[in-house]
Design a protein around this nucleic acid. Structure first.
Length: 594
RNA sequence: GGUUCCGUAGCUCAGUUGGAUAGAGCAACAGCCUUCUAAGCUGUGGGUCGCGCGUUCGAACCGCGCCGGAAUCACCA
């Protein structure tokens, strides 16, 4: 189905041009009529005054009269100040509704042939996932869903930071204090067990620093000299040299972490088409650095380190390769970017990474451009998101104020369960069904809460108060869906035929719902263009809210006129369908009952 | 100090890319369940859109300058 606004715009343009002659695009301003005024679409007359040489009111009236006479879909119009409000005939909307019902792929754009890669999650393997990762994962997954709905081929990738000093810290602490503990022996999730030893390391490290300082060493020196840190650094060197014992321990403990992550990812409902491991990619990019040196884009310092000078671009000098020839973050990212574009013929590459990396991505794009790959540079998007803060301020792992992802998910589900029990909602359900619904609702609340916020903004998360199940929330939308599904079940039980002709007079509220439904494809397109799940969230909420008002005021199943009842059931069914579809773009499931 | 981002109701957030009287939810208060699920619906109160100047028919939105906050500017990843 074509976007209706485009169709209307063409009709209006035709009318205005036959009155005043050819128009530039910016002179034709059409928008949906605001709710407080009567009408479907509004033409702003001000930009046309120079052509009409009349007052705003006279211009708008003239166009309105012309359109009413010449465009069959226009039923009436009114003019308020310089605004021409056009009302379409209700048969126009009924035809649109019939199109929606018939369209099996409503809301999905046809294939574009474009391939987009999106990287998200990108965890370290030394500790479990936390609230910040949740925002990242939900954003990445949702944007991937939205891009698919926009007709792109999407490749979801994870880049796991599985190597480095942080992993060695956990490994060493486990070796020293672990007594051979395993996830099996302790019953702990693997990522939590490894995280426990990361904390353990920090404890001993701090104690050692304190002791060295008590012996008269300066703080800076003590922080460098603490034996346990030296040992961890030694371990990293051994790892790079592929020392069999260290390597085996590394593989074993990372294996625990991956098993743990898998559980969390599954609980969150996110997945990946491909997982990259930094241990396999960290050497990439060195040849690109060589290339940059040859081209004179980079330069080498006396100590052999390689740099790029970006001061003319408003940035600083940036290190690309260490003096000892080992790679840094930027080296690796250049390499992976190169490989990804070469291997996959990507049209776009999206990185879902926190805003603390804004500078990094500025540099990455500039370096690629200067290396002579503007076609990549221009198609890299850093989908930057703000921190999630707690009422006490920022999360700090050292102070134990981190909100653990697994705990949070479990809490949300438990709360949903309690709420259901309190409201007596799932009394006649099986235990398994009650579990499934509570999981959907708890996660729906969490996901919607996070995704409705503009990613750029730092957001506040109050574990006690923020997550609500009433008002502008995931459960509100899920509930709307469940009520409609209940209606349809009952209709089926009563043997009411839903298919077929449903010719009936539409109420204004019903036209309003149809209008909202027709907005869905354009909403999906807008969300895709901006990588903005929040646009979908706002739309689905609006649709639910509007339907709830309608549901409250009008009988649907209890309506006695058969064709009106059928039309209303069909309308409700399409609302439920679009809710389900939109929520799926957010990665949120909707229940049949709740 | 440089760069980037943010600032809208007591709180959490929208605001269709410059349009009409700036909107939701939460919290507060007042109502609505013998009738399709009350996780719902209706109503009341609540605003110097951080501040100032400019651009124009028109600015929360664009430009400039301030104020406040965040991130970053590492031979960490």
């Amino acid at each position: 189905m074509k976007h209706i606004e485009t169709y209307i715009a063409q009709a209006v343009r035709g009318a205005v041009e036959s009155l005043y002659g050819p128009l530039a695009d910016e002179q034709l301003q059409i928008q949906k009529t605001r709710r407080e005024f009567e009408g479907d679409y509004t033409l702003v007359a001000f930009p046309l005054l120079r052509r009409s040489r009349k007052s705003p009111e006279a211009t708008a009236t003239e166009i309105g009269e012309y359109m009413q006479a010449h465009v069959s879909e226009i039923r009436s119009f009114n003019v308020i100040k310089g605004f021409l409000n056009l009302t379409l005939d209700s048969s126009f909307w009924q035809d649109r509704f019939a199109e929606i019902v018939a369209d099996e792929h409503f809301g999905e754009a046809p294939a574009t042939g474009r391939t987009v890669m999106i990287e998200y999650s990108s965890p370290n393997t030394n500790k479990p996932l936390h609230l910040g990762h949740i925002r990242n994962n939900l954003l990445g997954y949702s944007v991937a869903q939205i891009l698919k709905a926009n007709g792109h081929k999407v490749i979801k990738v994870n880049l796991v930071n599985d190597r480095g000093i942080h992993i060695c810290k956990s490994m060493l602490a486990w070796k020293l204090y672990g007594n051979g503990e395993t996830p099996e022996s302790t019953g702990m999730k693997g990522d939590h067990l490894v995280g426990k030893y990361y904390v353990e390391f920090d404890k001993h490290y701090k104690a050692q620093v304190k002791e060295l300082m008590a012996q008269g060493m300066s703080e800076d020196e003590a922080k460098k000299q603490a034996p346990i840190l030296r040992e961890a650094q030694e371990m990293l060197r051994k790892w790079e040299a592929k020392d069999p014992e260290v390597y085996a321990l590394w593989e074993r403990m990372n294996g625990w972490v991956y098993a743990g992550f898998d559980v969390t990812y599954k609980a969150l409902g996110v997945d990946f088409d491909k997982v990259y491991y930094e241990s396999q990619t960290y050497l990439l990019g060195k040849s690109l650095v060589e290339e940059g040196l040859r081209k004179g884009v980079f330069y080498r310092r006396e100590d052999n380190s390689v740099w790029i000078d970006l001061r003319n671009d408003g940035l600083d000098e940036k290190l690309l390769l260490r003096g000892d020839g080992t790679s840094v973050y930027m080296t690796q990212d250049l390499g992976t970017a190169y490989r990804r574009f070469e291997d996959n013929r990507l049209d776009d590459m999206i990185y879902v990474v926190g805003n603390e990396q804004n500078y990094h991505f500025q540099v990455l794009k500039l370096v690629l451009k200067k290396l002579g790959y503007p076609e990549w540079s221009d198609h890299i998007t850093h989908l930057s998101y703000g921190m999630v803060e707690l009422p006490e301020g920022k999360m700090k792992s050292r102070e134990g104020t981190v909100v653990d992802a697994d705990d949070l998910i479990a809490d949300m589900v438990a709360t949903a369960r309690e709420m259901s029990a309190e409201l007596g909602k799932l009394a006649d359900c099986s235990e398994a069904e009650a579990d499934a619904v509570s999981t959907m609702v708890g996660l729906g609340a969490l996901k919607y809460f996070i995704l409705k916020v503009d990613p750029k903004k730092t957001m506040l998360f109050d574990p006690r108060e923020s997550i609500d199940f009433n008002g502008n929330t995931g459960p509100f939308i899920q509930y709307t869906h469940a009520r409609i599904r209940s209606l349809l079940r009952k209709a089926a039980e009563a043997g009411i035929e839903l298919q077929g002709d449903a010719a009936a007079e539409y109420l204004p509220e019903e036209i309003a719902l149809v209008k909202l439904l027709t907005d869905y494809p354009a909403t999906v397109a807008a969300a895709g263009a901006d990588f903005a799940p929040s646009i979908i969230g706002a739309y689905v909420y609006e649709l639910s809210k509007q339907f709830n008002g309608y549901y409250h005021d009008h009988a649907i199943l209890r309506e006695e006129r058969a064709e009106v009842r059928r039309m209303r059931l069909q309308l409700a069914g399409q609302v439920a369908r679009v809710i389900r579809s939109g929520m799926a773009l957010l990665g949120i499931d909707v229940p049949e009952r709740m």
